[in-house]
Amino acid sequence: MSAQKKKNEFIYFSSRNPKLLAGVSIILLFLILGLIGPSLTDHDPFAYANPLGAQPPSSGYWFGTTFFGQDVFSQLVNGLRATFLVGAIGGGLGTLLGMLIGFTAGYRGGVVDEILNALTNIVLVIPTLAVLLIIAAYLEVRSIFTECLFIGLTAWPWAARAIRAQTFSLRTRDFVDLARMSGMRPLKIIFTEIAPNMMSYLLLVFILQFGGAILTAATLDFIGLGPTNAISLGMMMQYSVMWGALQLGTWWWFIPPGLAITIIVGALYSMNVGLDEVFNPKLREM
């Protein structure tokens, strides 16, 4: 009865939280656009489709064309796919690493904790961009997946810290001692006793990592360190700036990708705040 009630409570508060609802709808909207968008247009994102070059939005090219006559809409929807991919894989990898390190440090404590904490702090202070510059210089072909890997490997420390702190406080609860007195092994305790209590928290961490990965990817793409064999929102902005879109006033080239990134990341944060309110009874507005 109570599981039911708890579930209902979750649905009740979720369905009444404007921040969460707005965030989720916007993300869904973009996700759908990314999924079905490419099939709505015949133009290849890289094809020089419009012989007239840069043209404002029209019925043939909904969002206009670039300096080279490429379809902006097609680039945008294909770029959205890349963006979500980076968010999911990069953010997911960051969350997983964060969980691994956070759980271990928080549950074990002592020397293990100190070593992992030191590692976390080191990765935290490494100037990510500089490292990426060096790595990028050695890689001739960079795919979206290499980019995800970069981001995941450098983004986990924040997650690890947060998860460690939570694990730390949960492991002092008596039910963990009770599990130990039932002869359960540490790994089993972490996954059957501690992690389930943090599901809401882990979800929040994942959303934050998701948004963070998208932003990092956009930054990398914008300075020319993005994938060499795909299109992304960040790269669209890079090309537009590189080919003088700002000076030539071809606003339809850089506004859509810039706006899309801003809205997606904004929506993710709004979701985060909303979920926080749903999970945390103290923040709920009656």
Partner: peptide, 22 residues
Amino acid sequence: LKEYYRKVQGVFQDPFSSYNPI
């Protein structure tokens, strides 16, 4: 140690903290 726990057990102060709330 597991055999030891067959013979020795404990009950703690806070009944609510002794249960996984979920």
